[in-house]
């Protein structure tokens, strides 16, 4: 297992290198730069813009720029954001905890809801409750997250006033106190739920079908014949079998959250990596765009790696492939 993991980790290196080439040249190919569009004559002038372009090295040959960027990147220097005028690493460090918090909350909600609903549906298939849950599932899968997000802001934040409509925390509360964390949780609930809706629905569906299928298997009949109560059979035998494949989804989840966070953070004005990314693309903040893209690509890679490894643990045959 260790050897397999090691091989997969080493395999990521050329992949990351290729990604870095693509990321860099794509970023450079974006029209305009961070200084285009600055025509506020009260604030700046053409000489300053020309000087900054030279200073930032935008006039050097592209391969020189790439070499500089990639060597800096390897040594941990992600460059300086052209918009925020601060090291990109610090900038990302500022926003990343928010996104991680959002992602973890979303995962938690997803798994809790999916377990609860999936188990209910799986144990009592074709009942009213199951049909209701199925209805929720279909809606969860079909309603695009941005549509759901817009509806959620409209109803839960404005009409019902249950949740805040923007931000990640109430500034007046002192850091570190319990209220502080409650405020953060309060702010993150709505976006996290929208973010996790799709996977909640698909996991519920998966768990339900798996439970139904497993309940028809021989070992269940055997257990029943031996007089084990049905409840225990579900909790001990069936659930365990159904959870294992679900766990392997975790890796894919990480990859899916990456894309989802962009849309969700935009709708809820939740200051995380996704919002920073959109902002940076719109402002042509190359160092930030490149660093985030690299980071997200690496996360997808790692996510897939985790998925494969978990899968390898569950199903040893995979390791050979």
């Amino acid at each position: 297992m260790l050897k397999y993991t090691l091989r997969r980790v080493l395999g990521m290196i050329p992949m990351l290198f290729l990604v870095s080439v693509v990321v860099f040249f794509l970023a450079k190919a974006m029209p305009g730069d961070s200084l285009s569009g600055e025509i506020d004559p009260t604030n700046t002038n053409p000489e300053y813009i020309a000087e900054m372009r030279e200073k930032l090295g935008y006039n050097d040959p592209v391969y020189v720029q790439y070499y500089r960027w990639v060597t800096d990147f390897m040594s941990g220097d992600f460059g300086k954001s052209t918009r925020y005028k601060m090291p990109v690493a610090d900038l990302i460090g500022e926003k990343l905890p928010n996104t991680i918090f959002l992602a973890l909350t979303s995962l938690l909600i997803t798994y809790v809801l999916a377990f609860a609903m999936g188990m209910y549906s799986g144990r009592k298939p074709y009942t009213l409750g199951d049909n209701l849950i199925a209805g929720f599932n279909y809606a969860g899968i079909a309603i695009p997250s941005f549509v759901a997000g817009v509806f959620a802001v409209y109803f839960f934040a404005f009409k019902l006033n249950w949740f805040p409509f923007a931000g990640s925390v109430d500034i007046e509360i002192d850091k570190g106190t319990i209220e502080y964390w409650m405020s953060r949780i309060h702010h993150v609930m709505l976006p996290a739920f929208v973010l996790g809706m799709f996977s909640t629905a698909s996991y519920t569906q998966f768990l339900r079908n798996d439970l139904i299928e497993n309940s028809r298997k021989d070992f269940v009949r055997t257990a029943l014949a031996k007089g084990t109560p049905m409840g225990k059979i579900y909790n001990v035998h069936i659930l365990r079998n159904s959870i294992i494949p679900l766990v392997t989804f975790l890796g894919f989840d990480i990859a899916a959250l990456v894309g989802g966070a962009i849309i969700t953070e935009k709708i809820f004005t939740y200051p995380g990596i996704g919002l920073l990314f959109l902002d940076s693309v719109n402002n042509r903040d190359y160092p930030t765009v490149m660093a985030i893209t690299m980071m997200l690509s690496a996360m997808v890679l790692i996510g897939n790696l985790i998925a494969d490894i978990l899968y390898g643990i569950v199903d040893p045959r995979i390791r050979l492939g």
Partner: peptide, 19 residues
């Protein structure tokens, strides 16, 4: 294929579409 699959879809669509 892995290479293509490993791109964060939304991120790259946004960047490519801008270009």
């Amino acid at each position: 294929t892995d290479f293509v699959l490993n791109f964060p879809f939304l991120v790259f669509v946004i960047v490519l579409n801008t270009i």
